[in-house]
């Protein structure tokens, strides 16, 4: 059995799942729009939270937030469940698919057999859509893949019950009811306001542009505090969080700029197009930062890739983004 599901490849899993599920239910929106309405852009530096002994640095909001906020802001009702056992989880998925409702699933990446082996790490906040079953194989629309994929039941159960940080506990979610005449402009405004508040009005110095500045001053002292070897590991970790698959490049700045372009048309406000362009420039700056940071990691640093030069670039990003998001607040 299989549902006719519109698979579209996307840059980021959660916004991709959100856009594809909404499109299936009659609200055809792009991934970028789903990302923006869901308030996906974020910056957080939490040096006291450790992942594999490295600090938590995130460019996106908490897992699950994009879907929940985007769908709610568009006026749809969501049903989300977790399960105590893989058997129960599979039974519920089978029932939902038999009833013809595609289901979003949170999974770990490590156990998914169709993932490129080089990317199989213990990361538990991956999202995909199950839209059918063929014998013991599930038919999946995994939005970071070009085409739909298949996954045997046993592997999918493992992935749905991956353990560790952000364990999915079989989480399955779907759009329950949807009247696709929600106020798109209002939803767009809500999404933008949320991101702006986080980026420039955060009450704690770990979040938004203040978080970027904090990271810059910490990064500057990594070599003396941690030693060269650890400092390079920290730098590599930062590049991964910013650029590895799932961010659409530049720590989500480009996807957000794409969203602002669409928002300009929806809200009929050309100022947003200008801000989209500026944000594209800071995305390029972030990428330039990654390029130079990588050079530093390889031990081939020049004057522009020392730790203090890199910190200076982060401060430049923070300064420009502060202006952008303050201007954005005034527009909406």
């Amino acid at each position: 059995m299989s549902i006719d599901f519109p698979h579209r490849q996307s840059a980021h899993c959660e916004s991709g799942v959100t856009a594809n599920l909404l499109s299936y239910h009659g609200q055809r929106i792009s991934e970028a729009l789903a990302f923006g309405i869901g308030g996906g852009l974020f910056f957080g530096y939490f040096p006291f939270v450790r992942i594999n002994r490295l600090p938590l640095i995130t460019f996106r909001s908490a897992p699950g937030a994009i879907f929940k906020k985007c769908v709610r802001r568009l006026g749809a009702r969501v049903r989300s469940q977790t399960f105590a056992s893989p058997r129960e989880a599979s039974a519920a998925l089978d029932r939902a698919l038999a009833a013809g409702i595609p289901q979003g699933l949170q999974t770990g990446v490590y156990w998914l057999p169709y993932f490129p082996p080089a990317l199989r790490f213990h990361f538990n906040a991956h999202n995909l859509v199950a839209y059918g079953r063929d014998g013991e194989d599930y038919l999946l629309s995994d939005p970071v893949f070009e085409e739909p994929v298949r996954c045997p039941r046993g592997d999918l159960e493992r992935a749905r019950f991956a353990k560790g940080a952000l364990a999915p506990k079989g989480r399955m979610y779907a759009i329950e009811s949807f009247a696709p005449d929600g106020d798109l402009a209002k939803a767009v405004r809500q999404g933008i306001r949320e991101v702006c508040n986080r980026m420039v009005r955060a009450p704690i110095p770990l979040i938004g542009v203040r978080g970027v500045r904090l990271l810059a001053s910490r990064l500057e002292r990594w070599p003396e505090r941690l030693g060269r070897e650890q400092a390079v590991l920290h730098l590599g970790h930062l590049i991964r969080m910013q650029e590895e698959i799932g961010t659409g490049g530049g720590g989500f700045r480009f996807i957000y700029a794409a969203f602002l372009q669409e928002a300009a048309a929806i809200l009929g406000n050309p100022d947003l197009s200008g801000l989209a362009e500026e944000l594209t420039e800071t995305g390029d700056l972030w990428r330039q930062f990654a390029l130079l940071a990588a050079r530093n990691c390889k031990g081939r640093e020049g004057a522009n890739s020392t730790f203090s030069a890199l910190a200076e670039q982060l401060r430049d990003c923070a300064r420009r983004e502060e202006q952008i998001f303050r201007a954005l607040l005034k527009v909406v």
Partner: peptide
Amino acid sequence: YVLAPSAGWDPANLAN
């Protein structure tokens, strides 16, 4: 803005 396929990027590959 458009979506464009990428085969990977050296700085990200290096970090990986």
